[in-house]
């Protein structure tokens, strides 16, 4: 290894482990010094590059991945739903027709009332499911909604916000397992907080607190609706609840 190449390597890659480099580095004191010096400089540069990594970075990454997983499952489950829907459609069409053909009112009756018998699910698990499914849709949303916009939508549920409850990133109606509910995303202390206002007559099973691996939530009955709040595990949801309860006035 000639002098120039050695100097180059000593500065560029002082930790080179090749025999040619190591033997050349051990050959003289000045060579040794040069290597030590540039190792020290590398160390100094390395230290300077050590910026703080956000504490919750890995949590956020895994959270996002779990949502992606959920998303994939939903997408891949759709063809089942499509087939189920087609079969239901055929049955829905054919049963009353057969009923008419056979002139049996009883058959028509059972076919048309059967779908009305609804299974009431637990409000917490519906909320968690909903937040996960919409995560990618709303992840980057920031509508910066005004109090006026929020109130226009809240009015349907007999509620009115007297003063602002912070930054509203998203507000819209949504289908909460078939029930039309209000879906808001607010800025919480740690991250995004999703708030649902679900009408009482939807008849969900109440659940005052609930959680899964990545999210937690609480719900409470207010006015003639249920308030459901969902956030990340380290989010102080009670604080948000107090804020909302203090701000929203209910007609009844």
């Amino acid at each position: 290894m000639d002098d120039i190449l050695f100097r180059h390597s000593a500065i560029a890659t002082p930790n080179d482990k090749s025999d040619a480099f190591l033997s050349r580095a051990a050959a003289s004191d000045s060579a040794k010094n040069l290597v030590e010096e540039s190792k020290a400089f590398d160390k100094f540069l390395k230290d300077s590059l050590q910026v703080d990594v956000p504490k919750d970075l890995t949590d956020k990454i895994l959270l996002e991945q779990s949502f992606a997983l959920e998303h994939d499952k939903t997408v891949s489950a759709r063809w089942h739903i499509a087939i189920a829907a087609s079969i239901a459609f055929v049955i829905g069409i054919s049963v009353p027709m057969m009923g008419q053909l056979t002139q049996s009112p009883a058959a028509v009756y059972t076919a048309s009332t059967a779908p009305l018998v609804k299974q009431h699910s637990d409000i917490g698990s519906v909320a968690l499911q909903h937040v996960k499914q919409e995560y990618f849709l709303t992840a980057k949303a920031n509508e910066n909604a005004t109090l006026q916009t929020v109130n226009a939508k809240l009015a349907v549920y007999g509620a009115k916000a007297m003063d602002s409850f912070g930054e509203v990133l998203f507000v819209n109606y949504c289908s909460f397992e078939g029930t039309s509910a209000l879906h808001m995303i607010l800025k919480g202390e740690k991250g995004r907080v999703t708030v649902f206002v679900v009408p009482e007559d939807a008849g969900f099973k109440p659940s005052s607190s609930f959680k899964d691996k990545h999210l937690k939530g609480i719900s409470e009955h207010l006015g003639n609706a249920s308030l459901v709040i969902v956030g990340e595990p380290d989010e102080p949801l009670e604080v948000m609840k107090e804020k909302l309860a203090g701000s929203i006035k209910w007609d009844i």
């Binding site: 180059h8 500065i11 560029a12 890659t13 400089f41 590398d42 540069l45």
Partner: peptide
């Protein structure tokens, strides 16, 4: 090329 660039960057 990589060695040269590292060398120049550090210099």
């Amino acid at each position: 090329t990589v060695l040269t660039r590292l060398f120049r960057a550090k210099n």
